[in-house]
Design a protein around this nucleic acid. Structure first.
Lengths: 203, 203
DNA sequence: CCTGTCTCCTACCGTTCGGTAGGTTCATGC
DNA sequence: GCATGAACCTACCGAACGGTAGGAGACAGG
């Protein structure tokens, strides 16, 4: 049989198969055997490209977190208007979710899974916090600029917004009913801001 | 060695050990062997009380979901005032969380885990929806009664509230920093309602 | 033509998995 | 005292697990 990939094609094939399996069954319930079968590759080939099962998983999860981070930063930088930034964040994550549902699934599942479920060496918590801090920092600045109700701490505001958005994403994983589009993003921001925005009428 | 439990003591011991293991490592990564070692019981004893590993897990998860459901219903029935009902729900779940952190962990993790991660026969989705419907129904009635802004659908409102509350719980699993007490519950409801409550000033 | 390196293979390692066969001990009913 | 059934045990099963030893085929430089 000819060498399939002097480039990185085999590696990509493994990643693709692994993503599908991990997204469907989680880390522990996924076997390396199934991955190599899906990728039409032998087991030593997998271990040629990746140090072990955990390393393969980490490559996927890191990519997902980093891409979410990049998208959120990009959304924040896309405009100066605070409301528009929020809409851009939600909207960007919705689009990413619809295109990369499986990556998003392992990313979210990993974040809230039991500590021993996922490989221990994986530093996913840092990346989770980093992503949250994008929102948190945005809230801090908006609060300082007077766009948000000062009765609430920036952390509370970030929780309110982040929580609502995340529930939409998670709900879509288990019940893919709702429509994750820009109008929905705008309505989410409206619901959040109608309370969080500082009222200039009273106090 | 004497028979330890003519009552249900051994069964409880198994459940206790299983909860600890499942909460720490998730379903797939937990082995029956470890459970029976923790419970100081032999493997056939476990299979004497439970049909299989999945049945043992289901017993725990069902209990957690049912208890959450009971608490939320109780909170709703505790008062007529809508705002007080919301605070009661959040506050009750916070208390339950602090007392039953491990049960809450497997309950939440199961809800958002990959479909193949958890035993397939487990009907947890029904219970998740049932719990969500407690909130959803409450929002429906409050919206119809004019307590909530009619520009938002009841489902959106439920998502906003439920999402925010859930993030507090989930965040406390990974970063047990924040304080899950009644003042926090009130602030969450305030943040949610300051937007969702119908303003009688304009429109 | 030889040698090394990159890529990928078959075959196998020891371990652990979920689950069971079959037997033993105790409390009780008769 | 003796059968019965609940409560539990030791010892083991086949299968699947993550991972590896060792080699084969293709291509490069010398």
């Amino acid at each position: 049989m000819p060498r399939l990939s002097p480039n990185g094609e085999t590696r990509q094939e493994i990643l693709r198969a692994a993503l599908k399996r991990f997204a469907h069954s989680g880390y522990a319930a996924t076997s390396v055997q199934h991955i190599v079968e899906d990728a039409r590759v032998s087991k030593p080939t997998l271990y040629y490209y990746f140090p072990d099962k955990a390393g393969l998983f980490q490559a996927l999860v890191s990519e997902a977190h980093d891409e979410r981070y990049r998208l959120m930063r990009e959304a924040v930088d896309s405009t100066e208007d605070f409301r528009a930034q929020l809409v851009a964040i939600v909207s960007a994550l919705f689009r990413y979710f619809l295109k990369n549902r499986e990556l998003m699934r392992i990313s979210l599942a990993t974040a809230f899974a039991a500590p021993g479920e996922v490989p221990s060496g994986l530093r996913y918590l840092d990346k989770c916090e980093r992503n949250f801090e994008v929102i948190h920092g945005l809230m801090k600045r908006a609060r300082a600029a007077g766009h948000l109700d000062r009765r609430f701490e920036s952390r509370e505001l970030a929780f309110g917004f982040y929580g609502q958005m995340n529930l939409y994403l998670m709900a879509h994983l288990t019940m893919p009913g709702g429509r994750l589009n820009r109008p929905t993003a705008e309505r989410i921001v409206n619901l959040f801001l109608s309370g969080a925005a500082a009222k200039d009428r009273k106090a």
